[in-house]
Amino acid sequence: MKLDLILRVATKLLVPFILLFALYVQFHGDYGPGGGFQAGVIAAAMVILYAITYGLEPAKRAVPPAVAQAMIPLGVLIFAGTGVATMLLGDNYLAYNALDHHNPVHGQHLGILIVEFGVLVTVAGTMVAVFYTFAGRGR
């Protein structure tokens, strides 16, 4: 019953590279093109590729829908929490200079990375959850 043997092997080999590339786009976004949104979409595309080739149930075992749904508000919380943290550190909302008192530039860099990570989490969670609900209907 191994109908799509070639596709299965190809997917199995390709999935780690897609995830690696998503992380590259995420954390290299300061230097090249890319950022949280693109990286989130690529990471979600990885899950979707897995679900297409191996079926929805194995994909749901790998990335449970509850995790995907929890990721949606988690990203917004990371983003907003960064703002609250800068406020607690004695600066304006989302003013990343406060994150590192000795070197404001490093604070800015760190803040941008954290915020982009929040965007990544929200986007990836939303895409995966929407795909699960659409593909799981009518079964």
């Binding site: 019953m1 109908l3 979707i48 590729l49 191996y54 079926g55 929805l56 593909a135 799981g136």
Partner: peptide, 26 residues
């Protein structure tokens, strides 16, 4: 990387009429 995903999605849809099914249930 993403070109493959779109192509495979369309073809899988044609083959099984459903994106969710896995080949083992066929």
């Amino acid at each position: 990387l993403l070109n493959l995903i779109g192509t495979l999605a369309v073809l899988k849809f044609f083959r099984y009429g459903d994106l969710a099914r896995s080949a083992e249930e066929e």
